[in-house]
Write a protein that binds this DNA or RNA. Structure first.
Lengths: 151, 151
DNA sequence: TAAAATTAGTTATCCGCATAATGTTATGCG
DNA sequence: CGCATAACATTATGCGGATAACTAATTTTA
């Protein structure tokens, strides 16, 4: 692949990251949320209470990031952390009523963001989009797919 | 659009951002670069010297971000900043010899990253990918959607 | 031409996310 | 058993990127 084409792809991904995140930030700001926090709330709303290690896995970010996110969301009253009875190392994270209400407010915003993002594209492209993006992600994911002679 | 589908799209974009950036970071680390800096060096290599406001426009990030990036790249000797003769407010940014050499080292890495990213996808999808991603970006770009398509 | 508005750049501060190092608890094995 | 190792969580630190507030220089306009 020549550099022009490679740069077009890499730059497009970089710019999409910046703009999609910025747009998400603008939509979430009225709810008092920063981008990234909505993923945590939605995951808890979808799957139910879980410990931080599971959240870290589900969100695809590292445990220290989850520590900070949960601390802030706990401070704002949207989640609650309780010690896990079966494992004294772990904290079970769950939504408060406030957090559940907030998750319900996020959902329509999330739909609006996705619709805005794909507007103007052919329906077939939209339908294939998640699969394509996940394939790209899987190709560069060094998190789960550890290589034999890596690190 | 229902929430499931919307979330699949938004989450896929979020995860791709994280993973692609992380992979870029791993590739750039041996060169002493952090992700984001390569875009600045490549833009200068492509277009030549320009003032920071033009860099900000080209990179799609805000002027304060450019201030920090240029300061660090100047400190590591890869770029040089000179006062613009025609406008005493502006600084002209250009690559040093070290910066030019570094840009040439980045290019193969950038090609490798793009190839890795799209590996396994049908050639037609790869060919359409930049256009699709740019369309998505344009849809959520609240910054300034002028320019058609350059580079 | 003097005043107002715009533009270039910097500083300060915030957030998300990362890695490294630390303390604590579980667990696997000899 | 007991001890080494792995796993959960946290703290500290650093980077990219954002906004807000500011200085200084340029342009517009009254």
């Amino acid at each position: 692949m020549d550099f022009e084409q490679a740069d077009a792809i890499n730059q497009a991904i970089r710019l999409l990251s910046l703009r999609h995140r910025a747009r998400a930030a603008a939509l979430l700001a009225p709810l008092g949320l920063y981008p990234g926090q909505e993923a945590l709330l939605l995951e808890l709303a979808r799957t139910g209470p879980m410990i931080q290690a599971q959240l870290s896995e589900a969100l695809g970010c590292e445990p220290p990031s989850v520590t900070l996110m949960t601390r802030k969301l706990e401070a704002s009253g949207h989640i609650r952390r309780e010690p896990a009875p079966s494992d004294k190392r772990a904290s079970i994270v769950e939504l408060t009523d406030s957090g559940k209400a907030l998750a319900d407010k996020i959902k329509p915003l999330w739909c609006a963001l996705a619709e805005e993002t794909v507007s103007g594209l052919p329906a077939q492209t939209v339908a294939e989009l998640p699969g394509i993006l996940n394939a790209l992600t899987g190709n560069v994911d060094t998190r789960r797919t550890r290589h034999p002679h890596g690190r």
